[in-house]
Design a protein around this nucleic acid. Sequence first.
DNA 1: CTGAAAGCGCTTACAG
DNA 2: CTGAAAGCGCTTACAG
Lengths: 349, 349
Amino acid sequence: MATKESGPRLIDVARAAGVSIATASRALAGTPGVRPAVAETVRRHADELGYVANVHARTLAGGHSKTVGLVVHEIGDPYFSEIASGLLRLADREGLSLQICHTGRDPEAELRQVRTLVAHRVAAIVVAGSGFDDPGIEAPVRRELDRFAEGGGRVAVIGRHHLGSDAVLPPNAEGGRAIAAHLLGLGHREIVVVAGSPVLTTVADRLAGVRAAVADAGLDPDAVPFLEGPFTRDGGRECARRILAEHPTATAVLALNDDMAIGCLSVFREEGVPVPGRMSVTGFDDVAVAMDLSPALTTYHLPMAQMGEDALRLALQDPAPEPRRHEVVGRLVTRDSSAVAPATLEPLG
Amino acid sequence: MATKESGPRLIDVARAAGVSIATASRALAGTPGVRPAVAETVRRHADELGYVANVHARTLAGGHSKTVGLVVHEIGDPYFSEIASGLLRLADREGLSLQICHTGRDPEAELRQVRTLVAHRVAAIVVAGSGFDDPGIEAPVRRELDRFAEGGGRVAVIGRHHLGSDAVLPPNAEGGRAIAAHLLGLGHREIVVVAGSPVLTTVADRLAGVRAAVADAGLDPDAVPFLEGPFTRDGGRECARRILAEHPTATAVLALNDDMAIGCLSVFREEGVPVPGRMSVTGFDDVAVAMDLSPALTTYHLPMAQMGEDALRLALQDPAPEPRRHEVVGRLVTRDSSAVAPATLEPLG
DNA sequence: CTGAAAGCGCTTACAG
DNA sequence: CTGAAAGCGCTTACAG
């Protein structure tokens, strides 16, 4: 039994069924123009032999792939795993396989991963990781993707990229504005913004929204402290510690993703800083756990799974003359981690 | 530019470099036995043309694939996304691509997904979803996997399966026992167990551990109420509501994964049931957010990312005469959601 | 060190 | 409706 052979091939089922491989191929593919009885026989023999067509041979001969690629920063991150989940659900319905790559927010890794996907001749590539504000950084990836598109490949991105492709656009600026307005409306005047690097368009756009809201309120955006750290839970912890040390009069932390907000919450809990009594904390994204934190996190909701699905749907359509823009609708979700700014200030730390 | 052609082929770079495709292939593969200067020329031309070898042609001709498959129940679930993250990290280091499938805990979907992976002639398949207690349910998948292994494919599973392959085994029984002992030690006598279907080996094994601890304490395991629901956050919410209605004297909920525990916590918060004052709640897995919940969740820690890595590592080794068993080490993590059973009982709900 | 040729396992015009 | 044959783009013995 342990034949070390690569399983039955089309020719094996053809022989078993007493037909040519052409007919066998057609019968299995469901191509019309095969006598039903013959097709049936072929299928039966294929089943009996446990025949599974070799995708590589099929793709090479047929020219079209049934696999799509997804590029994320980190699949362990809920933001991306929820996007992946939605995308995978649609892929499944469409009979497509999914290849996932992660980049760790490193542009060179991204280039490598895109190359791999191109090498696999996937039908479509969805780039879900944030874009980079500097078009130069994305130029090599763009070249690769352009070539891919010229060869008939389809591309869609989530977020603002300089990639010239169909895009699903989260309302990052709008969200930043809404959250900041919310905090300002609660009387907060010493708000510290905490985020990943502004070279990421996601950060840049959310931050721009925050600044716009601050300006709208007649205040000076440049006076709002901005703390940068890894765009992760640990990054949030780092920043929270810096706030304790460097911004003793702050009354609110506006984190530009939920991960960082969660990191902040945990430090504040450890250090006994009451949230929201002494310090309000807000996030962005509304990952599944946001509502189950305590205090439940005020944040800006993005429908991640839907965004993943939408991105794949764009990538599955024929290309448009101009890149398509699919605008995502988000919403402010007010929960328990934000409240009116305290009247008198307990010192921090 | 929009030539709709499939990008440069090996023959294009061979021609450009003035060599045969055999030499070009060797130069690009780094096969020894090509004059260094020639190899260099080939590589330069490949770069200039933006050549990316067609994986399908390469796999078909070469016989070995550089892709591995991962089967999970649901990629949006942190348990699986953390496993995927660890596995992907190792895959990356090994220059392997990753194809992900999800099954939604449906054995038929699992069979379909495994078939797809086999069709892709992946080098290895890692099944990360829980096994099923009834060997019959897994029989079709096992047949498929056996055939795959006979053809030289490698298989590894996470959890107890009837799949006859290398396995990474989480200490499910041990963990169940540790958690139950912890709760019993705190004086809880009315513990409600909350979990997904015991047809899943994960549930069955954790439950067996719980029952063993109960028996060890001289109590009757059959007297411990077991509530079944979807093995998800929503399932946890469902069960919590039933506890409120049907088990008014319970003092502890022992959920067999963190997701369900999180669902319970949210219902108890909504209903004003103090945790852990009136009700202790414990989880299992220790997903990243467990420590950031409030109260921080007492749970049994499993190193998910490491498990993903270990599973892939097993799958990358040559097959052993007997299936390998890699035992995972876990540990009880006592946090704030569990405490001594209340002396006097406030009615629930 | 290099090349001509066979072959990987399919699909798809092209004839019949 | 069916089959013989070309071809997808590579790798790898086999000669030289």
